[in-house]
Design a protein around this nucleic acid. Structure first.
Lengths: 208, 208
DNA sequence: GTCTATAAATAGATAGAC
DNA sequence: GTCTATCTATTTATAGAC
């Protein structure tokens, strides 16, 4: 989905505008709550155009899902392939997830919802992309273990410890505003650094 | 909502059955995806009964939200009020969230979805309950700081570090099955212990 | 590629009998 | 408290003209 992905910034053609508008709509209201008319309006296209470009609302949604996880997978693999120490790769992994979550604001909310419904809309291709991310992290962990710098650890647990708080933070900007005063401020960098430190502390066995 | 809450196990009256069926439906499909006819069928009541007991689909959903956060708030305050060392209270806090997430299987998915839509359905009462949970954690942190055992920390960050991975773990049981082989197993207790350790390590400044 | 008009199904909500 | 029947609005999707 390179065309759609590249178009997130300033959608030139109607297909890319549909993609971008749909991503925002699905993020804000979920698959069931999303409305094709509203997507059309936001994309400044006629509703029929949506069905010209995509087979159905479901197919459009799945395209967005695939694009999301494909992008994270790619970014994360780049980190794993770079000539870096395992510790740096872990930091890079955290950064990659955060960067992707920020590059695509629809990513965190959609991700949370997919978790909530047990990946109901996740097709085989997307499932592969998700596996890739997990396997990439697993590879970094094994590399660190072979180098004698990481203790053995469950990749799933490490992954959850990284991704969950990140997505939560990125997705709760508006909710935090709603909670208002009494809830202390917090910055993106603080969160990323915090997660990097914790993850490395766990991997290096510095946590009793 | 004590009546509805107590009825989660074996719903005796129709109102409680509606409540329980609706909780499951909203958890599985989200607010927009939930279907009142389906709720009626699952609750073994006539659809009109739902509107007899609750003003609308939205009101029914809000009642479930309130019940959830009220319950966590209560359980968490009990931990904070107990005569325990701050460290034990933190462990208890983690346990309380996990226990509540397990006692109400609809809790984790609904929680994730509410985060995703920025608390769109959260009314004032529910907002209060959520604040209570945050404030309770804040109280435990201050107590530990006064006792010289905890370093200063952002309650929101600590809270996210606890709740996010827990909810994620509890909500991903089915998705983990879908990912299938290649994804290592993981137990509830391992997750809880892991989160307790990490949180305490952070609070005690054992993480560089 | 783009638009109008509309088909067809779904779903929230209620009136009114019992 | 419970049920039948139905109204009404919404919404996905498409046929067909340009």
């Amino acid at each position: 989905m390179p065309r759609a992905a590249a178009a997130l910034a300033a959608p030139p053609d109607s297909r890319a505008r549909v993609f971008a508008a749909a991503a925002a709509e699905f993020a804000a209201r979920g698959y069931a709550g999303a409305n094709v008319d509203r997507i059309a309006r936001a994309a400044r296209v006629n509703k029929a155009m949506i069905y010209y470009h995509y087979k159905s609302k479901a197919a459009l949604y799945r395209a967005i899902l695939r694009d999301m996880f494909d992008a994270v997978g790619t970014r994360v693999r780049a980190v794993a392939a770079a000539p870096l120490a395992p510790e740096e790769k872990i930091r890079g992994f955290v950064d990659a997830i955060a960067a992707e979550g920020e590059a695509r604001p629809h990513f965190p909310p959609i991700w949370l919802r997919e978790i909530a419904e047990g990946g109901a809309h996740v097709d085989q291709a997307t499932l592969e992309y998700i596996r890739h991310v997990l396997q990439t992290l697993g590879g970094i962990l094994r590399e660190g273990q072979r180098a004698g710098r990481f203790h053995p650890a469950n990749p799933l647990l490490i992954h959850a410890g990284i991704v969950a708080p990140l997505m939560l933070f990125l997705a709760t900007a508006s909710l935090r505003r709603k909670l208002g005063r009494g809830v202390p401020e917090i910055t993106r960098d603080a969160v990323v650094t915090h997660i990097q430190r914790i993850t490395l502390a766990v991997l290096e066995g510095r946590i009793a």
